[in-house]
């Protein structure tokens, strides 16, 4: 159970970063930390004690495999995370070009 708790703490660390940091890049890093805590949670869901990697090879002895589905899901989610992160960073660079700062307090042309 302790691993799930650690995983949740990692999530909170990321959330703390997103909520308190003023630097655009640090906000992106905070989001990635949250993302990876959830990937970790998925990997933990599928874990079985003494389970083998679910790949069929010759002379296999054990019949106990870890659940492959969460692993497949994590891989897909990592690909999606890659897309969102690169999108965020691209926007961050463009923002820097327009505002000459990474400080989120100074990026405030939209109000109301």
């Amino acid at each position: 159970m302790i691993v799930y708790l650690l995983c949740f703490i990692l999530f909170l660390v990321g959330l703390f970063g997103v909520l308190t940091k003023r630097n655009v890049i640090k906000i992106v890093i905070g989001l990635s930390i949250m993302e990876f805590s959830i990937f970790l949670f998925f990997a933990l869901i599928g874990y079985i004690d003494e389970g083998l990697a679910p790949i069929i090879v010759q002379n296999i002895s054990s019949t106990k495999f870890v659940d492959p589905l969460p692993q497949a899901m994590v891989l897909t989610a990592i690909v999606i995370g890659l897309a969102t992160n690169s999108m965020l960073l691209a926007i961050a660079i463009r923002l820097y070009k327009k505002y000459n700062t990474f400080d989120i307090r100074k990026i405030n042309s939209l109000k109301g």
Binding site: S86, A90, I93
Partner: peptide
């Protein structure tokens, strides 16, 4: 492509 795009942005900035 992502790498090149980021490098090009950086150069332009």
């Amino acid at each position: 492509t992502i790498f090149l795009a980021l490098v090009i942005y950086k150069e332009e900035v």
